[in-house]
Design a protein around this nucleic acid. Structure first.
Lengths: 340, 340
DNA sequence: GTGAAAGCGCTAACAT
DNA sequence: ATGTTAGCGCTTTCAC
């Protein structure tokens, strides 16, 4: 059999209550006794049974992590890294993470993740955009929630977000500082909050520099910010507006598509045109030229989200909803250049 | 409070033992009683407490899933899909999956995943190549193991593998049937069992067709089967051996690198050279031409691994180690053509 | 500062 | 065919 609290108590010559007290950092235990107990725990390699603990405390020690299947399977391991960040935090916090995907299209009678139905998590972290219907069904369960990289359209929630506005601002500001004036914006699904914010940052940078916003060089009608759609957007954009000297793409995938289009059509980057992306994905093969971009600390997002959750669970009632903005950083590489 | 077995018993007008018996599909319960209980369970939306159950059965209901961090974060979601496969199976099997990554370089005093130290899993699935040191440290814990997409160099283990030999054979055989005779092999790390097997399949196909194996057109000294290394291998290969008409790359990443090299150097695919890959990766942007390849059912690998684990846990002692080979399939696209 | 004991929800051996 | 009950390992209240 496994070693239990009884074994520890016997070895340390104390009662099991004392062992429990030591484990919970109670200060009503003398240093001598505490050390005896700690020593016994170490020698026996004792680990408390989660089942027993859970039974009495009515907690599970599990945190659910939910995201849509397509997010989880994305080629760029964006959400995978967020997940990993949450996992890192739990290593020091005595929680386990249970991951479950849901369908991107969530229907009325689609099942919720089993850990929700069975109440087998103490809290749930939701990563990326999820269907509204899912959120509303989930709300009935009164489980603490933390959203990461997505803010639901309505309601007051705990969220951890990239500072997208700042990122859009930094990217655009940098291009302006390089002397660019005709700076195009290429976005995918502009209804996505992250893209909207990057676009806001773009506009703020232009305005703050006294540059006007030219709707002709703003492309936001692609349905998804993919590489292929970036290629397509570049095609439309560059054939129509000849005086563009720089493009801010809403993410690296689109930027890489634009880069590809330029390469295929003899447009030199950064000589003819400067390009800035967003995300800082590591491609399997690095692009030529290398992309100037906004670095998003993905793992950090997960770390922040799980820390938030852990605190939330610790403080219980008196916890107020919190918003955390994770800062981003401009990474200057070779897809941008100064112009006169 | 949550609804417990007592509530169900009261509602159904039976004892808690009867409820438990019904739950465990005992046949010593009359149909009438069973239905009463089932009805109460449904009406109360009762879910047994895992903690209580775990406490008495000394099980946790959790399965660990371990892989190296670099595997998990690979651009192509190969292992992510395997993981998802395991998750799918657990939805019907009342287990939860706990994922933990380990370092690719595992050192003597690196910590094992916490769920192992705390004995909080009933079994562990190990995906992809992991350090030998990790396996040997793990073995001390006497936890049932299933390996997926990797076979440890020594020991008798439960494994779920791709039929790599068959895949290598199918790919090469197809090229031979198209009339190719000078078929190069481009592999990455040839010491990796999967690559070794694909290479064996390659040789078997050549031999079975009476073709000789030409060491000059076999490149196996790249350290990792990446796109960049495929590019590099193509560079060396095609500058040195002018009469090659086809290349079997050990995976799609390398094949795409080769494709890129051909494109950059004016070599037409499939006109000048036919290329076959392995894995059937979906790229963010589909290559031109599209890659003929061997499809590997990734989710299926996870499903098989978890099924194996569930059965293993069910049968306990009398379980003999099992090997499962998951079949692969030739996917013919446009990177290959018949020659005269 | 420490211990005794109740009880969390369940399973399984035993009784009826 | 169904019920009674001990006990799994732990936390927590209450006594001392």
């Amino acid at each position: 059999m496994n070693v239990t609290i009884k074994d520890v108590a016997k070895k340390a010559g104390v009662s099991i209550a004392t062992v429990s007290l030591v484990l919970h950092k109670s200060n009503r235990i003398s240093t001598v006794t505490r050390n005896k107990v700690l020593k016994a725990i170490k020698e026996l390699n004792y680990h408390p049974s989660r089942s027993a603990k859970g039974l009495v405390t009515r907690t599970t020690g599990n945190i659910g992590f939910v995201l849509t299947e397509d997010h989880f399977l994305r080629t760029e391991p964006f959400y995978t890294k967020i997940f990993l960040g949450t996992e890192f935090v739990t290593r020091d916090n005595d929680y386990y993470v249970l991951l479950s995907t849901i369908k991107r299209e969530f229907h009325e009678d689609d099942p919720l993740p089993r850990f929700i139905l069975e109440k087998n998590v103490d809290g749930i972290i939701i990563a990326g955009k999820v269907p509204n219907l899912f959120i509303s069904k989930l709300s009935k369960y009164k489980i603490p929630l933390v959203f990461v990289d997505y803010y639901p359209p309505q309601g007051d929630y705990n969220v951890v977000l990239i500072d997208n506005i700042k990122g859009g601002f930094l990217a655009t500001k940098y291009l302006i500082e390089l002397g660019h004036k005709d700076i195009a914006f290429v976005g995918g699904d502009i209804t996505h909050p992250s893209i909207t914010d990057r676009f806001i940052g773009y506009k703020q940078a232009l305005e703050s520099s006294g540059l006007s916003i030219n709707p002709d060089i703003i492309i936001t009608d692609e349905d998804y910010p993919s590489r292929a759609n970036g290629y397509d957007a570049a095609n439309r954009l560059l054939n129509q507006s000849k005086n563009i000297t720089a493009i801010f793409a809403c993410n690296d995938a689109m930027a890489l598509g634009i880069l590809q289009y330029c390469y295929d059509n003899g447009i030199k980057v950064p000589d003819d045109i400067s390009i800035v992306g967003f995300d800082d994905v590591e491609s399997d093969i690095s692009s030529t030229p290398q992309l100037t971009t906004i670095r998003v600390p993905k793992t950090e997002l997960g770390i922040e989200a799980m820390n938030l959750m852990v605190n939330l669970l610790k403080e219980k009632e008196k916890f107020q909803t919190r918003k955390i903005l994770v800062p981003v950083e401009l990474i200057i590489r070779t897809s941008t250049r100064k112009i006169k």
